[in-house]
């Protein structure tokens, strides 16, 4: 799944070393081995299933965030969109008894509308996406807690059933714990396949890379900037709304605050996985590696004896090291004689 190819770099091997996927894969492997050596509990059925379970929701968020990043934007509003969709679906469909597809659909539509607002502001006025989504986050969470007075709320029966449903169950004879593989992971697989197709086999997908690489060139090449940006933010909003409903199901309860802060994890995961914050680059494979690394770290640091207090320090350090390596390579490339220095610090 290559991004737009680097034309002046004919050597394949060297090109692969420039990518971040190999590094992040190695880091992930090392971390898993370290946890296994220290605790002996990493490569057990129930731990893997637990990881998959805690991975599902952030991974879907990452798909949306990645599209936005590739297009040269950034979206910090998806936790707010997801929470608002989750709450509205739980609260106003609470005696609905039919199939869960309707709950998911309503969640996705709500998300789509909110994402559409982001998209309109970014595409029509060309405001920095960071500011727009910060602003709409404030509005959405204000509506959630102010106008709707959100608090913990039970989820409707179909969502409860979805949360209880399992593909299989993994039992650990040593610890006596067992974990259920959630059905929602199928949805993640489906979305991954669909997004892969979108990015690599459709013109819209190429357009997303193109406008992230160079919006002016993309427009001259005939891509409709407004339409593509609207599409990206609507898509990512719809994913967020859908994920909100899934989250509610998996928790068996609607906690309107517990997605807060997820935006940082997901942006970090995407960037670790090689999605460029300045646009034009990113692959689903890399991003999935990134979010897996973040999840393993959050779940397993305690297994290798790192006190919980240190967790945030580690997260911060990983973000900085992960983004620093590729940024430094790019910076050195730019500052070679003849290369035009681009402004640092510009998002």
């Amino acid at each position: 799944m290559p991004g737009p190819g680097n034309l002046e770099e004919p050597m394949r091997f060297k090109r692969h070393l420039r990518r971040s996927e190999p590094y992040i894969f190695a880091a992930l492997l090392l971390l898993c081995l370290a946890v296994e050596l220290r605790s002996g509990q990493f490569f057990t059925g129930n731990n893997i299933v637990d990881l998959a379970r805690s991975l599902t929701v952030p991974a879907i968020f990452c798909i949306g965030e990645m599209l936005v990043l590739i297009s040269g934007g950034v979206d910090v509003s998806f936790p707010a969109i997801a929470s608002l969709s989750m709450y509205v679906v739980s609260r106003y469909l609470d005696d609905y008894q039919g199939t869960v597809a309707l709950n998911l659909f309503v969640g996705a539509v709500l998300g789509l509308v909110m994402g559409g607002l982001n998209g309109f502001l970014v595409a029509r006025f060309r405001f920095p996406a960071m500011l727009v989504t910060l602003g709409t986050t404030s509005v959405f969470s204000g509506i959630l807690f102010g106008a709707l007075g959100a608090r913990e709320y039970p989820v409707p029966p179909p969502m409860y059933d979805l949360g209880k449903a399992k593909l299989f169950s993994a039992h650990n004879p040593v610890s006596g714990l067992s974990s259920d593989m959630p059905v929602s992971i199928l949805l993640l697989a489906l979305l991954l396949a669909a997004t892969w197709f979108l990015l690599n086999r459709t013109l819209t997908g190429r357009g997303i890379y193109a406008i992230g690489g160079d919006p002016v060139a993309a427009e001259r090449a005939g891509f409709n900037l407004f339409r593509i940006q609207m599409f990206i933010y609507c898509f990512s909003g719809a994913l967020a709304g859908l994920t909100g409903v899934i989250r509610g199901s998996m928790m068996l309860n609607c906690h309107p605050t517990n997605l807060n802060g997820m935006e940082m994890t997901c942006i970090a995961a995407c960037v670790l996985g090689g999605a460029s914050i300045t646009g034009g680059k990113g692959t689903l494979f890399g991003v999935m590696l990134g979010i897996t690394l973040m999840t393993v770290m959050a779940n397993s640091l305690i297994l290798i004896g790192v006190p919980t207090y240190w967790q945030r320090v580690f997260t911060g350090a990983i973000i900085l090291v992960g983004t620093g390596v590729s940024a430094y390579q790019a910076l050195r490339g730019r500052r070679k004689p003849g290369a035009v220095a681009r402004r640092a610090g510009h998002a």
């Binding site: 960071m130 914050i277 320090v313 973000i319 998002a347």
Partner: peptide
């Protein structure tokens, strides 16, 4: 981080946000 390493400011400060808060928690 922004100038010598070349990390975009929003990412660099996102990372140090976690780092500084983490240190304060420690």
């Amino acid at each position: 981080l922004v100038s010598k390493i070349g990390i975009p400011a929003i990412l660099a400060t996102l990372g140090t946000q976690q780092l500084f808060m983490g240190l304060a928690i420690v």
